[in-house]
Computed example of a mutant assay.
Amino acid sequence: MTNPGTDLHLDWFDGLRINTPAAELRAATLPARRSLKKDHQAAWLLNAVRCIDLTTLAGDDTPDRVARLCAKARQPIAADLLEAVGVTGLTTGAVCVYPTMVAPAKRAMGNSGIPVASVATGFPAGLMPLDLRLAEIRYAVDQGADEIDIVITRAHVLQGNWAALYDELRAMREACGAARMKAILATGDLKSLENVAKASHVAMQAGSDWIKTSTGKEGVNATLPVSLVMVRTIRDFHARTGIKVGFKPAGGLRTAKDAISWQVLMNEELGRDWLAPDLFRIGASSLLGDIERQISHHVTGRYAAAHRQAIA
């Protein structure tokens, strides 16, 4: 089910103010709020795997590379390690590719049920005419994309032009059709936590099914303070509308420790419902390798060489 959105309600965030030092302090304490060891740590790491959007967004992507990525999405952790911890059927939450790679990804996924996500709208900068951005969404959907990761026009946020941002996002939501939409805010470009919060509100009101921190191409990508602000706007939107919107941190999450820290954030601020892939995704590529390495250590008592946990 997609987020139907609402009318634009400027009064929901017009007077919003954020205590940046307090947000940073809260974020800094989150990683210490759960001491996870042994089986508990392994369980949280395996849950992170099922929430990963396994991603390749490189200029030299080919159908063969995408097929290898899809194979890893279908079997993200070595079968013998999963057998040792008593887990079956584990896959990543989705794979994320460029629009021209959607069809190869769909072929590689077969009947696995794993969604294929596509970036669109002139990723990563979004500086294309709106009609071309909408055409790119429709192309990706026609190719079979189940989810669309769009980028917002940062200038609308920096200029406080919330109506223009809302109208663009509503048009993108319509172009997505039945595909679910993730709105990438590119928070590293938005200059303040207040801008991040206001852009989050507009994206959800316009019908975004997830709000996402970053493209992974900005100078600063996902951080815990920014993520804290975004998930609190999700909480506020849910309280006002009853609609559950998902969250996707992307860019900069590389270690198993990162995977746990962001899950602790979701659990502390939004609750257990937001620890499932329909409401929580992690945009990553190298992260999976470190998680598999930690699971290997949990099972065998020693760390495997990095090449034994290759992404694809």
Rank of each mutant, 00 (worst) to 15 (best):
T2R: 12
L16D: 09
I18M: 02
I18T: 11
T20Y: 08
A22N: 06
A23S: 11
E24V: 12
A27T: 09
A27E: 05
T29C: 09
A32N: 12
A32R: 12
R33G: 12
S35Q: 15
K38N: 15
H40A: 14
H40C: 14
A43L: 08
W44V: 00
L45E: 03
A48V: 02
R50F: 08
R50V: 04
R50Y: 03
D53H: 04
D53R: 02
D53G: 06
A58R: 11
A58L: 13
A58E: 12
D60P: 05
R65Y: 09
R65H: 13
R65N: 03
R68F: 08
L69S: 00
C70F: 02
C70R: 05
K72P: 04
A73S: 13
Q75C: 13
Q75G: 10
P76Y: 00
I77M: 03
A78Y: 06
A78E: 11
A78F: 10
D80V: 04
L82Y: 11
E83R: 14
V85Q: 09
G86M: 10
T88A: 13
L90D: 06
T92I: 05
V95P: 01
T100I: 10
T100R: 03
T100A: 13
P104H: 10
K106R: 15
A108C: 06
A108I: 02
G110Q: 06
N111T: 15
I114E: 07
V116H: 08
V116M: 00
V119I: 14
T121M: 15
G122A: 05
F123E: 02
A125V: 14
A125M: 13
L127P: 02
L132P: 00
L132C: 10
L132K: 11
A135L: 07
D142K: 05
E147S: 02
I148V: 11
I150W: 08
A155S: 12
H156P: 02
H156W: 02
L158H: 08
Q159W: 07
N161G: 05
A163T: 04
E168V: 11
E168S: 04
L169K: 01
C176Q: 00
G177D: 01
A178Y: 01
A178S: 04
A179W: 02
M181E: 06
K191P: 00
S192E: 08
L193K: 01
N195S: 06
A199Y: 01
S200L: 09
M204D: 03
Q205E: 13
S208P: 05
D209F: 01
S214G: 04
T215D: 10
T215N: 06
G216L: 08
K217Y: 07
N221S: 09
V229I: 15
M230T: 02
V231N: 07
R232T: 01
I234Y: 07
D236V: 05
F237H: 03
G246M: 02
K248R: 12
G251M: 10
R254E: 15
T255H: 07
A256W: 01
K257I: 12
A259R: 00
I260N: 03
Q263C: 08
M266Q: 07
G271Y: 01
G271Q: 12
P277W: 00
S285P: 04
S285Q: 10
D290R: 08
E292M: 09
I295N: 00
S296D: 13
G301M: 07
A305E: 15
A305M: 11
H307P: 05
Q309E: 14
I311F: 04
A312S: 10
